[in-house]
């Protein structure tokens, strides 16, 4: 834990949203958003995708609060580069970071890459056995906002608001949370960074922020759509007790099995918009050539439910989710419950 309040400029703190936001200049609306991200499991399967996806996610994170991804810095962690395979992992990771920066590009300057303004490389990260750590590029992204007041926390806001999925789950669960923690395997089918798709989705979400539509936004990453929605439920004002029913029938056009829909980590966003905006949001997404799914309305029952048409697949009380979320590390590190 560290001091996330010092200087008094906080607008959104770590954990409140996908990126932290500050209002750096008195009397000005300009805001800065910061995010640091990385997932070593993708790189273990494909070090190129590991680098590329880390940039995609960091860029998504700042777009989630309405900021334009404007620069990154990297922290590239690998094993012993004197070993040919490890050096190859490093090379692939750098190639992935570079491709993502060039192909997502600066939204504000057509044809310019997102600049990598600094970085650090850490080699020889290995255990006593000499086995290298998984390729672990960590990316920090800075985003710029014209107006920090549009940045919102990920938590549900009001009953009757509508959740939309901006993007689409694909059948690419390799290295993902579901395979590792539920099935106990890595798989091989790692998500493929699609820079054009990422750019269009990021542009769309930033545009929705600028239009003042977004009441909450959260990107899809580890744990997929279901985890993202759960985090949005957990992040709300606990005295509001809002819930959601996710009907897989809404996502039937993806043609995927339920667990793939729920846990696919394909880059996307979930946004909460006021009711009655279907036409506007559909038009915006069509214009930007991104997929859009209307997932349903936020209700006033403090639980999260997954159904498939008339069949209930799962249900959790909000309190149960919150406890699991807050005590995850305690369980792992062996601190007894209730502390």
């Amino acid at each position: 834990m560290y001091d996330s309040e010092v200087q008094g400029r906080a607008v959104l703190r770590p954990g409140e949203a996908d990126a932290g936001v500050i209002a750096p200049i008195d009397g000005k609306s300009v805001g800065l958003a910061f995010s640091v991200d990385g997932n070593p499991f993708y790189g273990l399967i494909d070090p190129y995708q590991g680098g590329a996806l880390a940039v995609c996610e960091a860029a998504r994170n700042v777009a989630s609060v309405g900021a334009v991804p404007s620069a990154i810095t990297d922290c590239l962690n690998y094993g012993n580069p004197e070993i040919e395979e490890v050096f190859w992992e490093f090379k692939e990771g750098v190639r992935g970071v570079g491709d993502a920066c060039r192909k997502i590009g600066l939204l504000t300057e057509e044809g310019y890459p997102i600049p990598v303004v600094s970085g650090n490389v850490s080699f020889y990260n290995q255990g006593k056995s000499g086995k290298a750590i998984p390729p672990s590029p960590i990316i920090a992204c800075v985003g710029v906002l014209d107006d920090w007041s549009v940045s919102r926390s990920i938590g549900f806001k009001d009953e009757g608001d509508v959740l939309y999925l901006v993007g689409e789950p694909l059948d690419e669960l390799g290295g993902g949370e579901y395979y590792r923690t539920v099935l106990g395997t890595f798989g091989g089918n790692v998500p493929k960074a699609d820079f054009i798709r990422e750019r269009r989705q990021i542009e769309s979400v930033i545009e929705m922020h600028r239009l003042g539509w977004i009441k909450a936004a959260h990107d899809i990453s580890s744990g997929g759509i279901l985890t993202a929605i759960a985090e949005m439920a957990i992040g709300q004002d606990p005295s509001n007790g809002l819930g959601f029913v996710l009907d897989l029938a809404e996502l039937a056009p993806t043609g995927l099995e339920p667990e793939k829909i729920l846990f696919s980590e394909t880059g996307a966003f979930i946004v909460e918009l006021p009711a009655g905006m279907e036409r506007e949001v559909l038009a915006l997404c069509a214009r930007n050539r991104v997929r859009l799914y209307r997932l349903g309305e936020i209700n006033s029952f403090p639980r999260l439910e997954v159904i498939d048409g008339s069949e209930r697949l799962a249900i959790w009380e909000l309190e149960e989710l919150r406890t699991a979320y807050d005590s995850g590390c305690r369980d792992i590190f062996g601190v007894p419950a209730g502390r």
């Binding site: 309040e5 906080a10 703190r13 409140e16 920090w148 926390s153 938590g155 004002d237 606990p238 005295s239």
Partner: peptide, 18 residues
Amino acid sequence: PHPERATWLRQVPENLPD
């Protein structure tokens, strides 16, 4: 506690239950 960190409404977390 820090009153200067609660002087502007923007500093307040959105999920404060009050």
